[in-house]
């Protein structure tokens, strides 16, 4: 039983990690007032480019970096359109996803069917030998550790740093932030690029660790689930983290249902994360004020500096 439980928790962690990256990235971008619906596209781009880089160089480090760059490269298109050309954020984000799906399968057409061992596990000396906890917490690959660090850094950044405060100011009132003298556009560029990089990392985790290969459309809606998680978390980092792990927990049902002898068709189990997303959104959105109070006030609104 202990073994089964450990395996279950490990599955939750691997399922949650890409969601943590993608939704934290999106949260930062939304905190700056930019709603980027292109997460799914950026994830796929990160996944395919990361995988291609590992395939070409045999270096997982390069793969991770390339995945990250690919995600932010795609988000740069979004940033230029939305910030430079004043394009509607919703439409542009959708375009980014459609484009990302297309270009990733184009890039990845020769990568289908190639196998990769997956990111190496990095057991932390000493700690990983602790029974149970060692296996659960101290024997992961770099990206899982990275997601723990990310959540700590981001929540510290938003809560306790001046830059975090400026970021939130830009998202809550771009006119006021501009009047005080902050570079709204420049800050938004950085937030979008960061969001893209994190989505790229989420994708790289999928193709390098979660299931180390490339399949067209392999993110399977995780980008959208990440978007929902940000709303669910009411734009707070630790709630994003919790939400991602709750979703990890649902994924596990999907994977282990057969092992547990639940006689439900695979498709029904696969519906769970999507249905859960809807339910969670309903629960959280029900309270109008909760969303209103927590959402960045300028989200989705274009900014055109006038003075």
């Amino acid at each position: 039983m202990g073994e089964v439980l450990i395996a279950a928790v490990l599955t939750i962690i691997t399922a949650a990690t890409p969601l943590v990256y993608a939704s934290i990235g999106e949260m930062i971008s939304e905190k700056a007032g930019v709603l980027n619906l292109g997460v799914e596209g950026m994830m796929l781009m990160g996944a395919v480019c990361g995988f291609a880089a590992v395939n070409a160089t045999d270096s997982s480090a390069i793969g991770i970096i390339v995945g990250m760059l690919a995600g932010s490269g795609l988000s740069l298109i979004f940033a230029v359109l939305v910030l430079g050309f004043q394009a509607t954020q919703v439409a542009t984000g959708l375009a980014l996803t459609i484009f990302g799906i297309g270009i990733s399968s184009l890039i990845g057409q020769d990568l289908v069917g190639i196998a990769y061992d997956g990111l190496p596990k990095l057991p932390i000396p000493g700690l990983s030998a602790i029974p149970v906890a060692g296996k659960l917490l101290f024997n992961h690959d770099i990206l899982v550790y990275g997601s723990f660090v990310l959540i700590l850094v981001v929540s510290w950044f938003l809560r306790s740093t001046r830059s975090g405060l400026i970021l939130r100011a830009v998202g809550d009132s771009h006119d006021a932030a501009h009047a005080i003298g902050y570079h709204v556009i420049r800050i938004r560029y950085m937030a979008i690029l960061f969001g893209g990089a994190m989505s790229g990392l989420a994708g790289a985790y999928l193709s390098l660790s979660y299931s180390p290969l490339w399949i067209e459309n392999m993110s399977a809606g995780r980008g959208w689930i990440a978007l929902a998680l940000v709303v669910f978390a009411t734009w707070r980092p630790w709630r994003v983290f919790t939400g991602a792990y709750l979703f990890g927990g649902i994924t596990i049902l999907q994977l282990h249902a057969q092992a547990l002898g639940i006689g439900v068709p695979a498709q029904v189990m696969s519906m769970l994360p999507y249905v859960a997303t809807i339910i969670v959104l309903v629960l959280i959105s029900q309270d109008h004020n909760k969303i209103k109070l927590n959402a960045p006030a300028c989200i989705g609104k274009p900014f055109h500096p006038t003075s």
Binding site: F85, T88, L94, I98, F99, G102, I103, S105
Partner: peptide
């Protein structure tokens, strides 16, 4: 997949 890329690009440029 080239089709999807074309469609995405068209929307980008349009926006």
């Amino acid at each position: 997949a080239v089709t999807g890329v074309f469609q995405g690009m068209l929307l980008f440029f349009l926006l």
